[in-house]
């Protein structure tokens, strides 16, 4: 169950790339885990380490001025590809609390919400401008979820929009399973009572073909 997210404040790092897929965020070999903790060290693994596991020079999040970033400013289509929630866990374990991009992969976006990783959509031009600012190494953003505002050091304010239920989800951090049962348990039982029998798999005796 995620902690409530009301405000994200801190350094932003630019990721100058479109179409960052979840295979890049965390490669498949690190999916062989039974817990969600400790995945931060594998974040963007192939970009940060070579085939023998030695650190590569110069990946943005490893540069001293960006190491403590909590916000990632990407490009278009961030988080496309695989449904692996490990991508979200790795970002969060690394310390990223918010990703700004002009669009997100659908499943990645949903996974982020469930875990309390704030994903903000801004238009292409604004995202590009933020990346340029961030690349100077000292862009600190103050993001308020309730009022849907990003405050820049210059005092400028950018507005973003979250769907109301995504917003309340972030602000409250509730147990969704409990909430579903509480609010809709009756509906679920009704559906099941009326469920057509063809939808229920017969107990198969698997043939030997």
């Amino acid at each position: 169950m995620p902690e409530p997210v009301r405000r994200v404040f801190g350094k932003a790092a630019p990721l100058e790339m479109d179409d960052v897929d979840t295979d890049q965020i965390i490669p498949a070999q690190f999916l062989k885990v039974l817990t969600r903790k400790g995945l931060g060290k594998y974040l963007f693994y192939r970009w940060r380490y070579d085939e023998n596991g030695r650190p590569r020079e110069g990946f943005i999040l490893d540069r001293p001025e960006f190491r403590d970033s909590v916000i990632l400013v990407a490009g278009r289509n961030f988080g496309i590809g695989s449904s692996r929630e490990n991508a979200v866990w790795a970002l969060m374990d690394f310390g990223i609390k918010c990703v700004i991009a002009s669009s997100f992969g659908d499943i990645f976006y949903g996974n982020s919400v469930k875990n309390g990783l704030l994903c903000i959509r801004l238009d292409d031009e604004t995202v590009r401008r933020l990346r340029v600012e961030a690349s100077k190494g000292n862009l600190t953003l103050d993001i308020d979820v309730e009022s849907e505002m990003i405050r820049l050091p210059s005092g400028e304010v950018l507005r973003f929009r979250l769907e109301p239920n995504v917003k309340s989800w972030l602000l409250e951090g509730l147990d969704e399973i409990e909430a579903t049962f509480r609010d809709h348990g009756e509906k679920i039982r009704e559906y099941e009572a009326k469920m057509k029998s063809f939808k229920i798999p017969r107990r198969a005796v698997l043939p030997t073909e």
Partner: peptide
């Protein structure tokens, strides 16, 4: 396709 948290749900 869904994520792991959704799967738990």
């Amino acid at each position: 396709g869904i994520g792991t948290s959704e799967g738990e749900h």
